[in-house]
Design a protein around this nucleic acid. Sequence first.
DNA 1: CTGTTAGCGCCTTCAG
DNA 2: CTGAAGGCGCTAACAG
Lengths: 341, 341
Amino acid sequence: MPARMEDVARLAGVSTATVSRVLNNPELVSDEACRRVNEAIRQLDYRVNLAARSLRTNQTHTVAVVLPTIADPVINQMVEAIEDVAITAGYTLLLCSTRGDAAREHAYIELLTQQTVADGVLYISPRADPDTVLTLAQGAMPLVLCNYLVENPAVPCLLMDHVSSAYQATAHLLGLGYRRIALLNLAAPHYYPARMRLDGYLRAHAEAGITPDPTLRVEIDRPTYANNDWRGAIETLLARPDRPGAIVAFNDEVALEVYAVCRERGLRIPDDLSVTGCDDILSSRHVDPPLTTVRVPARVQGERAMRLLLKRLTRPHQPIPPRMLLPVDLIVRGSTGPPAG
Amino acid sequence: MPARMEDVARLAGVSTATVSRVLNNPELVSDEACRRVNEAIRQLDYRVNLAARSLRTNQTHTVAVVLPTIADPVINQMVEAIEDVAITAGYTLLLCSTRGDAAREHAYIELLTQQTVADGVLYISPRADPDTVLTLAQGAMPLVLCNYLVENPAVPCLLMDHVSSAYQATAHLLGLGYRRIALLNLAAPHYYPARMRLDGYLRAHAEAGITPDPTLRVEIDRPTYANNDWRGAIETLLARPDRPGAIVAFNDEVALEVYAVCRERGLRIPDDLSVTGCDDILSSRHVDPPLTTVRVPARVQGERAMRLLLKRLTRPHQPIPPRMLLPVDLIVRGSTGPPAG
DNA sequence: CTGTTAGCGCCTTCAG
DNA sequence: CTGAAGGCGCTAACAG
């Protein structure tokens, strides 16, 4: 049986109220009492019972992080940054990965709307219907969205500028002289980055006065984040007689899949096909040729998001900051070059 | 103000005890009462207060996962598997990533030994001193170790067979005819996989009757899991006049770093240098040449570990199962081949 | 099958 | 600056 506050109080010769004060507001207690209490705490190896404290205070000092998967380089970077900030503020992270499964996401939301599970929620690129997310938003719990958007100005959100990421990649390829540029994208309608990337792709074309061939726009449905169905789509695309000269891939992993298909078909990069990725994962620098990609501020977004959530936790009634777009940078490497001939 | 159990009880015309029973032991309640209570719960949108429940039951239905980083493909696979099992058992995961920082790891242990934070702990490949971990083991909280070992038979643990992973890679290279094989390893003395890999490397040499050149054993200290200091070591190694003909890299990411250095120095793989990795990350299939590596059962280990922890949670006094070694498989691809000439 | 009752361990007024 | 006292919301005997 672990020591309770009462045991500490008795040993220190004070009341439990004083012990509680030493723990939470030591400035209200005389130095002498403080010393005795701390000594008793040490002797008894006393630890507060956090359940009891939560019951009283209605706080858990826990933040739930809802995300589609942690097996994604951008997301796990974000989560580490979130955790770094959380720790310094005395918060702990509850991991809720939905794996793209709507039922699971729903179950997690159900859990989180329970009382005293978490003080706030960080929602990262989910795939569920926005209505589901709005359930949370309507609840009392502070909520911050990352790379996701619901049409509700009361919900703060941070977005990586994926319009720009696709725009920069596409414009770079158009600038090199390509006219037939394929876009490998996710079909998920609620997956906001996918919509933004389509936007950027189209905008770059529009600015160049070019109408992109709509059949070069390939959309893959990968709801569970697990199966790499890109392969088939890539093969089909590259087998076409009018195959594109360049590909804007959804991210670096998809771009590497393009590398693999090219190797099989004897296509050389960038001579026969230029390719861009997105995210700047570790391997993108290591492959041959090094991948032209877009660096995204994963850690920065995680930090900002957590800081914002902390602010809402401590000052719930402060105004919601406007949506924030985080800039991204194209990194030109060897996988893109002028069209052959 | 959210509804409490008393509100439900009043609306359903029963006592709070009955409401509690409907929630926890519905079989003890008449169908009629059950129906009325559930109806009231729905009407009031009642949710149990988990802090109150925890205070009473001393259970949190939460499991802490302590790990060095989630930005590692093997670990995040394990964590996802852990979460899958946890969810089906009604448990939630508390994320505790130490980032190789002893102080942070200590702080997390301190938190976890607090009462009613978590019901159990899963410890994955930490880097801290085993004594720190023993603190937890001595505590009342069930603990399961993954890829880590403390000399205490009371602590169950699952290990990937990294003796075998290094053994298989080394034996493969010896079989191809190499005699000067370098080992890129982590220097961390408490990082169990590193010790096992050295073991396997030495054992393969011993069985082949060969005494490995000790200067080909490079050990890197990368305590925070952040800085890739491998580069310098690899460059030094490959600049030697008596450079090795083959390298057993610590994992795939390190192997890809070897690829990069080779490209810079104009060395061809496998003609001028054979390389093996470990973990079989996604990119290892995509690089050119595809990487010879070792597939490790990340998901299986995660599942087993969580199941074991659940068992200890429900039956604390059952005997501890013996240490379990999970088998790993060498996958030969294009990065290894017979020595040139 | 159901209700009454007594805390779980802590925080927080309110008096002193 | 300190103590006494009440209650946060729930569960688990126990008695009916």
